[in-house]
Design a protein around this nucleic acid. Structure first.
Lengths: 198, 198, 198, 198
DNA sequence: TATGAATGAGATTTCATTCAT
DNA sequence: CATGAATGAAATCTCATTCAT
């Protein structure tokens, strides 16, 4: 029997390219087939529908990023340091994986309500990590008490918006300008002591 | 002339409902026709395409909100007060006009690049108002210097994300919980003096 | 507005031709569109699915034949005469409308269980007419008591089988040979007095 | 060799189930593979096509029934007795082997002309047996001369129709009601002397 | 022999837009 | 201005069959 996984991955990789370039509705299944050098039949053997290809891509992306974030965070000591490190890491991830960022942040919306639910799920997973460490920081007295859930989601929203804007306008200064400005905004926002601010 | 407007508005109102419920691609022109109790022919008499109906709706919404914000702000004295008032007002607007908010914040994305440009335009108009007053606050020494553009967009992103989340999960505490938490986050984030925080 | 009924009929007429020639699965909706000189869109405007076109055709056929039979029968006097007349008429109908007969008797089966239900429904309507007059004949003493339901369906089955066979083998003697043989078989079968038999 | 037969039979048995339930076109080769607990590859090793599986099934059924009928008939003395016995036997066979009966009588039609030819072939084999004995009965003066070919096929048609109807409506009285009614109808129809009728 | 992943021609259906009335 | 029947390009998905393993 031929290599099942290899084909599935070829499809996913091709889909990532095409979706990112043309958006969900702009992408034909035929294009994914051609671009993946497999066939429409192979696609429908591995995925029940076009939509599911997209969702599989979102999951793959979310899992990879979450995993990386946890890795990164584990190297830091102190809740605030962990938070700051993860903020930087998320920004870097999105910037590095432009294609996937476009998928997750923009093109998916074409799917309508169904997509939005999935997206919120994924954001929740990101938020969970942030909330965890915010709560730690509150508990150890590094910052005053605050609504960690709202804060986490507000941060994610801010990051999304700025990355989308950057993705569209193609500005040159993704990290250079966004990173320090956001760090300051976020850390001040939660009442972190000035010393944490460069 | 009267009737012309009447028909156009019937179409727009119906479209607002249907788009908000099913998303852009999920909405058939036939549905708008039926829901508006006019006809497909009438729709294509008043609008050149489905896309333009959507854009007209977004403009209608953006204009109304921007106008209202300016009104609100003009009553306040002091840059920080203006900022705080507008934050509250935007939240209230979005919460009040659920349907239109859904359109602007979510469902349009299906249109792809074309839509996103339009959306960024509208966000820019919101951001402009915020930036203006942030700069004022910096200039009069109320707050330390900061990147007003990034800050404005970060705020908008945070607000969007939270409102979308609320729109989808239907949580009961839109303003009650979001408003104070966001105010604190935002004002602290820009280094407003504690006295401004309740 | 264009003439709704005319198009619907054009589609139905074309479908009758094509289905009869190629069978249900052998017929493409494209072929019906082309043959009807309308368009695929028009077809799907008038019928929700290919299947429904077929069913509409069956209904049209059944209604026409039933109507004609009733007409024919009404001219005869005496239950047995009515029965004999209708037997002759059904045979003639099927022979005359080869195309529709093929549709009803043969090609529909391609639809599977769904079709069979519909076909049984139609046969029931035919059977009802026969049963009615058989019962009359029993009641007025022309023939001995018998199971009119079973008899009616047995007759229909016999006729179907022979017509199908004729349709396939293309034998030249449809009425000439089938009609007298079947008349004798049927009338004797229900115990009609010899005088009725030529 | 053992195993080869075993697999072939597993496939045939599974196919019988699935075809009977869903009709020819409604049945996927995958379903036969799954239901037979073999594989698509195995199916295509044993049969050149889906169609041939169906035909093999029909042959299997026809052979079994014909063989049984000949057996049954050989035990009877007198042409009319043989005829009556075979009528009863065919009914019993169909009733007993519901699934195969469905296949032969109904679902195959989906195959179009190809199938119908096959079906007519099989019916011819049944008809041959009937014709043979009808002719004998005519020859020995038990019944008046008649068109034995038409009669035989008319009988088969009548039986088919009634069995199909019973198969679909699931009426409870297959033999109890059908058998005596049909016997009377058929025997009277060929002019058998009253004494033959119970 | 057996497996099941892969193929790909082709099927049905959708839907924004047009246009005769 | 309004109507809604008609258009037709294009989209997704199906499934018998093949074939590398």
């Amino acid at each position: 029997m031929r290599d099942k996984e290899a084909t599935r991955d070829k499809i996913l990789n091709a889909a990532e390219h095409v979706f990112a370039e043309k958006g969900y509705h702009g992408t034909l299944v035929d294009e994914i087939a051609e671009s993946s050098k497999t066939s429409k039949g192979a696609i429908y053997f591995h995925f029940p529908s076009k939509e599911e290809i997209f969702f599989a891509l979102m999951d793959r992306f979310a899992n990879a990023v979450i995993e990386d974030i946890k890795q990164t965070i584990s190297k830091e000591r102190g809740a605030l340091n962990k938070i700051e490190a993860s903020l930087e890491f998320v920004l870097q991830s999105l910037v590095k994986r432009k294609r996937l960022a476009k998928l997750l942040l923009i093109h998916g919306h074409g799917l309508g309500p169904v997509y939005e639910k999935k997206r919120l799920e994924i954001y929740d997973r990101f938020a969970d990590v942030i909330e965890l460490h915010l709560q730690e920081a509150v508990d150890d007295g590094s910052i005053p008490p605050l609504d960690v859930e709202i804060t986490a989601h507000a941060w994610l929203g801010a990051i999304s918006e700025l990355v989308i804007r950057w993705l569209y306008t193609g500005g040159p200064e993704p990290l250079e300008r966004m990173h320090p400005a956001l760090t300051a905004l976020f850390l001040r926002g939660i009442g972190a002591r000035p010393s944490k601010l460069n």
